[in-house]
Amino acid sequence: MAFAAARTYQCISPSSPTVPAGVWSHVADKTWQVRPTWWPFVSAFVVRRPYAPPTLLTVAAETALLLENTNWRPGVALSWSGAAMSCPSHMSRFLTESLGLCIAIESASVYGWHPLRAILDADRLSNASPLYVASGSRPDFIVQTSSGWHGIEARGRGSTGPVGSGRPVAVQKSKLEGMHNWSLKVAKHSSIATPPSWSMSWAWITDAGTSIDHFDPGEPVALSADHEQAIWREMSAVASTLAEVDDPRVRRVDALDRRVSVVSRPIQENYGNGRPAWLTVASWSERMTDSELRERFGSADAPGTEASRELLGDLDLAAIGAFMATAITDRPPLENELPTLLQTVVARTMDLGDELGPTDELR
């Protein structure tokens, strides 16, 4: 995992921690680990597509484009590669905004989110959702945490410019006020007792490294079981489109007791200057519950664990979500290796699943 420097600011308000009174206090300097295997989640679940739903091919292509234009290897500062620095402006804007979203996923983990929990594009919510706001500012995505639901605004800028003594700068104040107004509008829903929390991750990305301003004013809000079920149905619909695309380049394998669709794509970091790797993205439309995961893959002795670890080598290990697994390997997995690879992914994720607690089963 690459790393980025993060500075956290909290709002000072005597009445409510969710009210941006315009006075922010610097409270911590931290280092965030950045996990490229989480990036396909952004492409699949957080990016609005007005003309067609996402497919495994588009998810892999968008993730590969970011990987090819950034220095993302473990132990290095997340930064642009030389190829990205020579991109035309329209391409550099796409890369910067996309990487800003991927970095914001790391801020979600600060609040206890991981890929076993839900992640929602705020622009794709149905008007029946209590988190839906018809007009005005909305966060880029909303995540499920152990404490409730949390909205996150993501921004990426291809320059150096973290806030200084006059923090926050005017453009940041405008976004902070917009998120505050979104929270107040959501709180008008009959099932929401208090304004939901939100935060903003503002990433400054250069060829020398990445700095993050993390603005954090509040605590998550709880939703009813019915509303949470509706959210999972919404995610299932997206996952189904990923798994069902009819394209000869997408392989189908039987794994995880599900019919799994898989696509692999080569990644040549820095266009030949780094070690080559392969990005593999797998998707299935049926969601596995936490208890199913524990029963089948809940120990290090899961079938094929050692074989898959050998396949993964020393590159980035995979991350798994409710309907998606990704891995960066030193060679493309063979079709008969894919079930074993996915089993290892699930077994590894059980370390994260323990954070859910014995009664907090994912429905």
Results as ranks from 00 to 15, higher is better:
61 A>T: 12
283 S>I: 05
132 Y>C: 01
95 L>A: 13
158 G>K: 06
65 L>G: 14
188 K>C: 11
84 A>C: 05
85 M>S: 11
231 I>A: 10
334 L>Q: 14
246 D>T: 02
124 R>H: 05
26 H>N: 04
169 V>Q: 04
31 T>W: 04
179 M>Y: 00
140 D>K: 14
76 V>T: 15
192 I>K: 02
6 A>Y: 00
344 T>R: 14
141 F>W: 01
204 W>Q: 04
118 A>G: 04
266 P>N: 07
52 A>F: 02
256 L>S: 06
350 M>W: 00
249 R>W: 02
251 R>A: 08
282 A>V: 01
261 S>C: 07
285 S>K: 05
69 N>A: 09
7 R>W: 03
286 E>R: 07
54 P>C: 15
348 R>G: 09
232 W>Q: 13
323 F>S: 02
137 S>Y: 00
352 L>N: 11
106 E>R: 09
39 W>S: 13
99 L>Q: 11
147 S>M: 02
238 V>W: 04
317 L>Q: 13
90 H>L: 07
352 L>E: 08
338 L>N: 12
309 R>W: 15
6 A>W: 01
82 G>V: 10
19 V>D: 10
82 G>D: 09
228 E>K: 00
64 A>V: 07
200 M>T: 03
327 A>S: 09
44 A>N: 05
293 L>S: 09
349 T>E: 12
267 I>C: 10
162 P>D: 15
123 D>H: 00
149 W>I: 14
185 K>M: 01
196 P>Q: 06
204 W>K: 06
194 T>P: 03
329 T>R: 03
64 A>I: 04
159 S>G: 13
235 M>W: 12
177 E>R: 02
345 V>M: 11
111 Y>F: 14
220 P>A: 09
269 E>D: 11
144 Q>K: 03
83 A>M: 11
170 A>M: 04
95 L>K: 15
340 T>G: 12
40 P>D: 15
60 A>H: 04
282 A>G: 01
95 L>T: 10
314 D>Y: 10
331 R>T: 11
116 L>G: 15
61 A>V: 07
27 V>T: 13
167 R>T: 14
186 V>Q: 08
342 L>F: 12
335 E>M: 13
209 G>P: 05
296 R>N: 04
307 A>C: 12
164 G>T: 12
221 V>E: 02
360 D>K: 01
247 D>A: 09
68 E>L: 10
204 W>R: 04
261 S>E: 13
235 M>F: 04
63 T>P: 04
352 L>F: 09
310 E>K: 15
37 T>C: 14
29 D>R: 11
348 R>A: 08
323 F>C: 02
233 R>T: 09
336 N>Y: 00
258 R>K: 09
162 P>V: 11
